[in-house]
Design a protein around this nucleic acid. Structure first.
Lengths: 346, 346
DNA sequence: CTGTTAGCGCCTTCAA
DNA sequence: TTGAAGGCGCTAACAG
């Protein structure tokens, strides 16, 4: 099964390549003798012909391939978003190729450049940070670029995000309603808008409710378990009085923080409460199960892909920036009785 | 910044495209007047020229792009393996494009076909199941294919895997040494060799030690938290006497199983012990922390990429099939005293 | 040192 | 209904 080209088929069928090309393209097969079409299709099948999408792209000006950039495949929270994208594109005969920045700022421009020079038709980026705007807007001059989940503060690029201000607010109100007044916050990287939003919604809710936010001594460089543990440890080791509850900007950091507090002899939910964000599958299964904020991940991926496709079809299209509302699931880490563990698979 | 081509630069510099091509290629710039080279490079920079890797690929017969296929990006265990691949390739100026089968058997052939028609130079597949052999071997006729982690029983394809028989054995001996004699097993999909291997190593160790393996009533259809919980629940609800410890074929399933047992009022490690596999970052941070088997993930990715590159350079090269030894980390889920939680980031 | 030519695989005029 | 020719962006072989 070496590479089979149109020419190989043409030779075998005794016709010209362009005839083969036409016969194999449903939209122009009608211009070829029906018998010839059948014959050619048979031969193509037999020889295991696979169109060279890329070569085709040269003529058509497209490669039927979308580039997707995520920050960190070690965070399972991206999986449903990616599936929303993959499944949407696949149903249209398009393909998503996924790349990872490893949450390394520098890497984004390299990754984008690679994807562009591989002639992707469009870009869906979930790893954007504030200083990436120039790179992204430059790319947007050539192909549609849609930002998802993470969207820098000031950019004209089309985007779909979660309402993280609202999510932060929900966390704040939940903790206030449980009687907490002194509440710690473990922030994710500050150049990622959705972390800033979570912080803002949370902080203003707490202030409004007459509470005090105890800020971590440092910001997580990356939103990982290890970093969550590290900055929690810093808070523990400081002289300041410990808060009675902590809000970590994502589940991974929350797991890390709970671990660090446990190492310090403190029990959750006995001695303190904790809340995460993202509602990863582990949240329902960890001990204690973790109160977390859930957002429609699959859906945001699906819509991001929709937008990218529509932009490709019509560059004039101006996608409405969307903001998906989150919801909070109280669990054992904030004193909720554990019912059955969640069983869904996404 | 619309697309800039060699021709644009040539026009501006008043030379022929091929001169530009040579000037921009370090390996042939020596054949061009040094002044011209500088001038051309300056113009190229100024215009923001980006080579079209794909077009270049047509002449060179390669695209500097490797396809990588993983089963499930919802499992964070794949991340370090992917990084081993990505970082290795990146250091050579190659790019990894990642695709996911979503652990869906059918999807693999479609994904491979997509990648092939995008003219990837090589394929690294970590999602292989037994019945994929024909597809994979067909692909291998055209480009180097390296299997990593998952490798069907009978295939001539180059592969690098973990020694899962040994890992299973270690789990068995660990549990025996703790005094367990009746031990449950929650198996992953049986058409994935490494799960079969884990089972085999484990079962023979237990038998050798005079123990009894209690098999789950069903096999996990996919190695996920939800499936782990499901088959654990089936074991609980059966009439059979419960084992005193369970071995789940990966961490996710173990978390699910511990959750299911907790729902049934049983405490780990008080009432039963549990062991996972993969040593995902959560294992150290969950409560109880999870005894698990660790394998050199980053390393296997790195080597898989090495092999693929070497095969590309020299199709005659016959990579030694490698089997990386695992190691077991005892934690609270088998009664170990928790020390500091693990802090590494990978 | 530089320009010309040809062609990777495909599709789309244009002409027959 | 079919063939011939041109070109997408790039590079290698061949002239000069």
């Amino acid at each position: 099964m070496q590479k089979v080209t149109l020419k190989d088929i043409a030779d075998r069928a005794g016709v010209h390549v362009s005839t083969v090309s036409r016969a194999l393209d449903p939209s122009s097969a009608y211009r070829v003798n029906a018998q010839t079409v059948n014959e050619i299709r048979r031969i193509a099948d037999e020889m295991g012909y696979r169109p060279d999408v890329i070569a085709r792209g040269y003529r058509k000006g497209s490669t039927a391939t979308f580039g997707v950039v995520v920050p960190d495949l070690g965070n399972p929270g991206w999986a449903p978003i990616l599936r929303g994208i993959e499944n949407n594109l696949e149903s249209r005969g398009l393909m998503a190729i996924i790349t990872e920045t490893q949450d390394d700022d520098q890497r984004l421009s390299r990754v984008i450049e690679h994807l562009m020079s591989r002639r992707v038709d469009a870009l869906i980026v979930t790893a954007a940070r504030d200083d990436h705007v120039p790179i992204l807007e430059a790319a947007a001059d050539r192909v549609p670029v849609v930002l998802a989940v993470r969207c820098p503060a000031r950019t004209r690029l089309p985007h779909v995000v979660f309402d993280d201000v609202e999510g932060g607010r929900m966390v704040g109100e939940h903790l206030l309603s449980l009687g907490h007044r002194r509440i710690g916050q473990l922030p994710g990287p500050t150049d990622v808008t959705h972390f800033v939003d979570r912080s803002q919604g949370f902080t203003s809710a707490i202030r409004l409710g007459g509470g005090v936010v105890v800020e971590a001594k440092d910001t997580a460089r990356r939103p990982t378990i290890a970093e969550g543990a590290r900055i929690m440890r810093m808070m523990i080791e400081s002289d300041e009085e410990l808060p009675t509850a902590v809000f970590a900007h994502n589940d991974l950091m929350a797991f890390g923080a709970i671990g660090a507090l446990r190492d310090a002899g403190l029990d959750c939910p006995g001695d303190f409460h904790a809340v995460g964000y993202d509602d990863t599958p582990m949240a329902a299964f960890s001990k204690p199960s973790l109160t977390s904020v859930r957002h429609p991940s699959y859906e945001i991926g699906r819509i991001a892909a929709d937008y990218a496709v529509m932009l490709l079809d019509n560059p004039e299209f101006e996608p409405t920036p969307l903001k998906f509302p989150p919801s909070l699931t109280p669990r054992a880490s904030t004193g909720e009785q554990d019912s059955d563990a969640g069983l869904s698979d996404d």
